[in-house]
């Protein structure tokens, strides 16, 4: 198990390889679909951010520079005095952010993206170019992972809804596996290829047409 502490420097990120199991601690920002759309529309596609968003931008930049994005839409207990607690907080499917993840990594200097299911070629290439990794958390282990959320520091755009808001959280010993590294390695590609080869074997043993003979 490799311990990672946020902020993470480029050298540390570059030392990580596919298959490494990590334990992550430090400041993280949750962001899923609505948040990614917002980050790109407000801060990537425009040269000057909207005045109303300046304060949010500072908070986001501070958290994401050498920082971590977590694809997560948590269940949150919000107390009357404004405090919040994460009740259930596993990862959500990452591939939905494939269209914009590379831009977000570049714009904010993100060093790690936590999610589940892996991401595609554009993100893999951004990980290599800017020095970042994809960390696969254990999908569905929401109660277990919520215990690794030590504190909720605040929230940006609570109006997006509980699941879509950007929660500023502090993690302690959050367990994940490096499944995409900064050297072009992807466990998802490896398993897809290996399982395609197994599929061919299975089809052959069942007397069915092999995959490569099919018209696709």
């Amino acid at each position: 198990m490799i311990n990672l502490q946020v902020p993470i420097d480029e050298k540390t990120v570059r030392s990580l390889r596919v298959g490494d199991q990590v334990s992550l601690s430090g400041a993280v920002l949750t962001a899923r679909d609505r948040a990614h759309k917002y980050l790109v529309e407000e801060f990537v596609e425009v040269s000057q951010p909207n005045d109303d968003e300046r304060e949010n931008l500072l908070r986001i930049e501070q958290r994401l520079q050498d920082g971590v994005i977590y694809h997560c839409g948590p269940v949150v207990k919000e107390h009357d005095d404004g405090r919040a607690e994460f009740v259930s907080a596993g990862p959500t499917t990452s591939i939905r952010e494939e269209g914009v993840q590379a831009e977000v990594i570049e714009r904010f200097g993100v060093r790690a993206v936590i999610g589940k299911g892996g991401m595609g070629a554009r993100t893999l290439s951004a990980l290599k170019e800017y020095g970042a990794v994809y960390l696969h958390a254990i999908g569905g282990a929401a109660t277990f992972l919520a215990r690794s959320v030590e504190r909720v520091d605040g929230v940006v755009h609570r109006d997006f809804g509980v699941a879509e808001a950007m929660w500023e959280i502090e993690l302690k010993d959050f367990v994940a596996v490096v499944t995409m590294d900064s050297h072009g390695g992807s466990l998802h590609d490896e398993v897809r290829e290996a399982s395609a080869s197994s599929l061919s074997g299975v089809l052959a043993s069942m007397g069915q047409a092999p995959v490569d003979k099919q018209q696709r």
């Binding site: 907080a89 596993g90 959500t92 999908g139």
Partner: peptide, 28 residues
């Protein structure tokens, strides 16, 4: 293996959720 570790965590998660009040998965 990572696979075995996944099961270890998932089984712990099941017990923790069963013993408490928090949703097993945040996507209910």
């Amino acid at each position: 293996s990572a696979g075995e570790n996944v099961f270890n965590i998932l089984l712990q998660n099941i017990e923790m959720s069963r013993a408490g009040t928090s949703p097993l998965c945040q996507d209910t």
